[in-house]
Design a protein around this nucleic acid. Structure first.
Lengths: 329, 329
DNA sequence: TTAGTTTATGTAACGGATTACATTTCTTTA
DNA sequence: TAAAGAAATGTAATCCGTTACATAAACTAA
């Protein structure tokens, strides 16, 4: 594989000139540029990013930290990130942490060792302390889940409000016993969504019932099923369930169905995220739409700005309650 | 950020010695090693991958080409790839082509410019000619979709047989009119699955009916819905449908439901892939299980071997027909 | 024509590691 | 104790671009 020296030699110019042509500087005369281009063509030369990156001290890689690649919410955000990345000449280093600290550390090393120019963390289970330390010397953005007052810029939505609205919707349909399937409250979004749930319950003069509050370890169909099973085993089962993720909701739906009950007649269900699947269930799922793609694009833009040394502001995006069959019938 | 020179200076040794400590060579005396480690500690030194990669002429990145990140089939394969990658000290460069040649070319450049050490292509729409040329100088593996006799090693399953078995299953349940929702037959897997379909039909003395063969542009719910709509509009609608992807099957299921028909009583449905969601539909989906995770691990192992300059053999993995409610009730 | 600009090109240092080869130091053994 | 061999460490080239600075060439104006 040819290198810049050989191109320079063949073109009869210096490496500096070749580099100038490569980088589109206009201080090169037309004839010289032509000669160089000819040489590049003839040698089938492609500049090595290894050399360039070392010299420029950048990798042009963006590290994306997600807990699980199989959750469509993340896939959709990644699509957005990739769109911006590619148009800014960055590439995406996809890292699935499985919420494991060791894995996470391996990935953090990528930025420490200059293999990545910055990080978009979407992992709620991320080690905040490490992240904060890292953020002092490296460009880091949090997306969806964030750490208040950490100084790490973030994009997210108003989880409390979104949750409040979803639960309010259920209550306004006449439901008096509304359950929530939440994830672990060590995560901020889980706490925020719980607050929204409680606020809706209180404001409408309903009673908080601890047995209507279920926590799951992770966001997955099976966890939704299990949680729903618990709810269905109650003497007084709820007539509506709000889940903190569509995956959970779909699992819940499944469980309700397999016990011979009907959604929404016997139990209404609302989810969160508006992943594509949520429109394919039977009945279709009422859910809080998160602007996933947009969240991705904004996170990427913020990160790239940060890498360039610019200051960036936190962003809170709009969500929207999408009412479908699972609460209306 | 400290570099190796500074570490050497502080430790009172040469850079060579520091490098030896870094790379765990045992030709360093215990005291020297200790001094170096102290210096590393004190300076908070992390070796730059940019320097190391340039010197070693490798990037330790594996490029994964997929058409769409939102298809869970790919997510699952990626999980497998990542597992192997991480344990071999590689990282994953995720590239979604959207089946666009320009995008693809941008990504191919990553290997040409040394930003990636090899490619796992899972994109059926990949430009085979370019890929073949590239494969002469770079490590490339095809995963799932492949190009026979191209010299590019691949991991896949026996699509013809898998398809044959699925359709045979439907026929043995008594169905006389079995439709297929296939994707574009410019893809090999689509042609192979079509062959399996036809073989099953013929071998059982049924008649091939062109109107029972539907092609979709892409693999997505909506495409499955649309295709199903066409089938339901036929004067004599089929009593069973085999789709070439679970996503299509789920879309089909949806369409059947919304027209007030029942699966499997009115129409039986079988899918392909066994994505997680296929077990969450109502009814649950009969499908051909592909060993997605394993496919990923094997593809990664093959690629890494190839990068090391080893010869690798093509691999055909086992599939399995998983019979569930959508064909049995 | 000459000094002063502007434009084009070249030279060489630099980024940060690895490693072949050279050299020094330490052991071992006669 | 000297010579030989083994072990530890150092020197400097190398990977491949980019760019500050130096120089040369071309042009402008007087």
């Amino acid at each position: 594989m040819a290198n810049i020296q050989q191109v320079a030699k063949l073109a009869g110019v210096s490496v500096a000139t070749v580099s100038r042509v490569l980088n589109g500087q206009r201080t090169v005369s037309a004839k010289t540029r032509f000669k160089v281009e000819q040489a590049i063509e003839k040698l089938n030369y492609e500049p090595s990013m290894l050399g360039r990156n070392l010299r420029n001290s950048e990798s042009r890689m963006l590290l994306i930290l997600i807990p699980a690649i199989t959750n469509p919410f993340y896939s959709e955000v990644i699509k957005g990130i990739e769109h911006i990345a590619i148009s800014s000449n960055y590439n995406i280093l996809l890292c699935e942490t499985d919420s494991s600290p060791e894995r996470e550390n391996i990935y953090f090393d990528l930025v420490r060792t200059k293999m990545a120019d910055g990080i978009i963390s979407m992992d709620p289970a991320v080690n905040t302390e490490t992240l904060k330390v890292l953020a002092k010397k490296h460009a880091i953005i949090q997306c969806s889940e964030y750490t208040p007052d950490s100084g790490i810029p973030y994009v997210t939505i108003d989880n409390e409000k979104a949750s409040y609205q979803a639960v309010k919707h259920l209550i306004q349909l006449g439901h008096k016993s509304v359950a929530i399937i939440n994830s672990d409250e060590k995560y901020l979004y889980a706490r925020q969504r719980m607050m929204g749930y409680k606020r809706a319950i209180m404001e409408h003069g309903l009673e908080l019932n601890d047995s209507y509050i279920i926590h799951t370890q992770q966001l997955g169909f099976e966890h939704g099923q299990q949680a729903m099973r618990k709810l269905l085993n109650l003497k007084e089962r709820p007539t509506a369930v709000f889940t903190v993720s569509d995956l959970l909701a779909i699992g819940a739906l499944k469980e309700i169905n397999s016990q011979g009950l009907l959604v929404p007649n016997d139990i209404a269900v609302a989810g969160f995220d508006k992943i594509d699947f949520s429109n394919m269930t039977n009945p279709t799922l009422t859910t809080v739409a998160q602007p996933m793609y947009k969240m991705g694009t904004i996170a990427a833009e913020m990160l790239i700005a940060k890498i360039k040394g610019q200051e960036v502001e936190d962003v809170i995006l709009d969500h929207e309650l999408v009412i479908r069959q699972s609460t209306l019938g």
